Computed example of a mutant assay.
Amino acid sequence: MKYTNAKKILPDKLIIEIQKYVQGETIYIPKQQKEYQHWGSLSGGRQWLDQRNAEIRQAYKNNSSIEQLAEDYFLSIETIKKIVYSGNNSERN
Score class of each variant (00 low, 15 high):
M1I: 06
K2I: 11
K2V: 08
K2S: 12
Y3E: 05
Y3D: 05
Y3A: 04
N5W: 05
N5S: 01
K7L: 05
K8V: 01
K8F: 03
I9A: 06
L10R: 00
L10K: 02
P11T: 04
D12Q: 09
D12K: 12
D12E: 15
K13V: 01
L14A: 08
L14N: 04
I15R: 01
I15Q: 00
I15N: 06
E17T: 05
E17W: 04
E17G: 03
I18C: 03
I18T: 02
Q19V: 00
Q19C: 09
K20D: 10
K20R: 13
Y21W: 11
Y21I: 08
Y21A: 10
V22Y: 07
V22H: 08
Q23N: 09
Q23E: 09
G24E: 08
G24L: 04
G24A: 04
E25H: 07
E25T: 03
Y28N: 09
P30V: 01
P30G: 02
P30A: 08
K31T: 08
K31S: 14
Q32T: 10
Q32W: 12
Q33M: 11
Q33V: 12
K34H: 15
K34F: 15
K34N: 14
E35F: 09
E35N: 09
Y36P: 00
Y36E: 13
Q37K: 15
Q37D: 08
H38G: 14
H38N: 14
W39N: 07
W39E: 12
G40E: 04
G40T: 02
S41N: 10
S41D: 13
S43C: 07
S43E: 11
G44H: 07
G45V: 04
G45D: 10
G45M: 07
G45P: 00
R46Q: 12
W48R: 11
W48Y: 10
L49N: 15
L49W: 14
L49S: 11
L49D: 12
D50P: 06
D50V: 02
Q51E: 15
R52W: 10
R52H: 09
R52A: 02
N53W: 05
A54M: 06
I56M: 01
I56Q: 01
R57Q: 13
R57Y: 01
Q58D: 13
Q58K: 15
A59K: 11
A59Q: 14
A59W: 01
A59I: 02
Y60E: 06
Y60Q: 06
Y60H: 07
Y60K: 01
Y60N: 00
K61C: 11
N62G: 03
N62K: 15
N63Y: 14
N63V: 02
S64D: 10
S64M: 12
S65E: 11
E67I: 07
E67R: 14
Q68T: 09
Q68I: 02
L69Q: 03
L69E: 03
L69D: 03
A70N: 06
E71T: 13
E71Y: 10
E71Q: 13
E71L: 13
E71N: 10
D72V: 10
D72N: 14
D72G: 06
Y73E: 03
Y73R: 02
Y73W: 13
L75F: 04
L75S: 00
S76E: 11
S76A: 12
I77G: 00
I77S: 04
T79D: 08
I80A: 05
K81T: 05
I83H: 00
I83L: 00
V84A: 01
Y85S: 02
S86V: 08
G87D: 09
G87H: 07
N89Q: 11
S90V: 02
N93R: 09
